[in-house]
Structures are given as C-alpha cells and as structure tokens.
Simulated scan of single mutants.
Amino acid sequence: MNNIKLIVGLANPGLKYIKTRHNIGSLYVNLLADSFNVKLKQEKKFFGFTSCINVCDKKVFLLVPTTFVNLSGISVISLANFYSININEILIAHDELDLLPGIIKLKFGGSLAGHNGLKSIKSNFNNSVNFYRLRIGIGRPIDKNNIVNFVLNNPTKYENDLIKIVMKKVIDYTKIFLSNELVNCSRIFKAL
C-alpha cells in the first residue's frame, strides 16, 4: 500500500450537496487533511480542491473534484497526468450502496457496482479498474427506484453517528497503510 500517491474523495460541487451521501468520499479526504493539519485549496487546472501530505518522507496528493461525481475522471486524470501518477497508485474514496452505514471496505480493483463516478475514472484511464477503493457504506433505499434521490440526500442522524465512528478508525488506519507495504489492502472496518 505504500505505493499510493493520490487519494481522491468523490463529491458533487456546491453547498447543496456538501452533506449528502454521495459526498461521503470528500468527507474522508477532508478529515484526512485535517489530521495532517493541511488545507485543501482550489486548483482550477485540476478541476478540484487539492493538497499534499507527507507520509514517511513520501508525498501523497489529496483531491476533491469540483466536477459532478459522474465526471470525476476529468479531475483525477488531470492531476494524475500532471504528477505522473499511475492508476494503480490512486485510492478513490466513494459512497457504496452495497454496504450499510458504519461499514467501510478497502479493496483493490474489481467490480464498480454501477457507480458512475468510478465509471468516469475507469474511462479516463484506458478502461482500467486497477485502482484502490475505499468503499464507504451508505446502505440502500427501501424503494430501489429511488437511488438518485437517496444518494443526493443527507444521511439520518443515526447513520451519521455510525459514519463518524468508523471514519475515525479509517483515518487512523490510513496513516498505517500509507507507510507500511506489508499491510493487507483488503480490509473491512465497522463502527460497532
């Protein structure tokens, strides 16, 4: 895992979406930046907010795209090309319908489960899915036809509480896996 050079938190731009389920990836990146006492700054050439952290004398870039989630690949490829970062050196933090709130799974590659932000990244990197993913559970709506409305709304207070608990565990673990090549890249974190 110590080959990660870019961590991206997927999000929709604007105050309207800031606390929605779809923006949970940006919450992770912002909390990670806070834990390293760095601020994200808008970089128009990268279509997002970015910063850099140092882990074991290695630079790791942070990025929250200002494109809509479905166009995230534009932002990711811009920064990756500028700094010569390969697809397998990128970690994408995103909302995951197939996991309940309070559960986060770290994995490499595999199915994108229909996530349009991940599809955009794949298409911008020659259809490769060889990137790390931090799948942050948001659960599914009862009505399966209501997914768009569900992801574009805020989690409940109970869901938020679970997300905060598990997010703290993941932030602490992030510092370990960025600095230790022996850490397993497939891991599940639970709030309870």
Score class of each variant (00 low, 15 high):
N2L: 10
K5H: 02
V8D: 00
V8S: 00
G9V: 09
G9E: 03
A11V: 12
N12R: 06
P13H: 07
L15D: 14
Y17D: 06
I18V: 15
I18L: 08
T20P: 01
T20I: 07
T20N: 12
H22A: 02
N23W: 10
N23R: 03
I24W: 09
G25I: 14
S26Q: 02
L27C: 08
L27K: 13
L27N: 08
L27S: 11
V29T: 13
V29M: 09
L31S: 14
L31Y: 12
S35P: 04
L40M: 10
L40Y: 08
K41V: 13
Q42H: 15
E43T: 02
E43A: 08
T50D: 08
S51G: 13
C52Q: 12
I53Q: 03
C56Q: 08
K58P: 05
K59G: 04
V60T: 03
L63K: 04
V64I: 12
V69I: 14
L71E: 14
L71G: 06
G73Q: 10
G73W: 01
G73S: 09
I74A: 03
I74W: 03
S75F: 09
V76L: 03
V76T: 02
I77E: 07
N81G: 09
F82Y: 15
F82D: 06
Y83M: 10
S84Y: 13
I85P: 04
N86W: 06
E89Q: 15
I92D: 00
H94V: 12
E96K: 01
D98V: 02
P101F: 12
I104H: 00
I104G: 01
L106P: 00
L106E: 04
F108N: 12
G110V: 07
L112I: 15
L112R: 06
G114V: 06
G114C: 11
L118P: 10
S120D: 10
S120W: 03
K122N: 11
S128T: 11
V129H: 06
Y132N: 05
Y132P: 00
R133N: 10
R133L: 07
G137P: 10
G137Q: 04
G137L: 05
G139E: 00
R140M: 14
P141M: 05
K144M: 06
K144R: 13
N146E: 14
I147E: 11
V148S: 15
V148R: 13
N149C: 11
V151L: 05
L152Y: 15
T156M: 07
T156P: 02
T156E: 06
K157L: 15
E159R: 09
E159S: 02
N160Y: 14
I163K: 01
I163Y: 00
I163F: 01
K164M: 08
V166G: 06
V166Q: 03
V166F: 03
V166D: 01
V170T: 12
K175N: 08
K175R: 11
F177L: 07
F177V: 01
F177K: 05
C185Y: 13
F189S: 09
K190H: 12
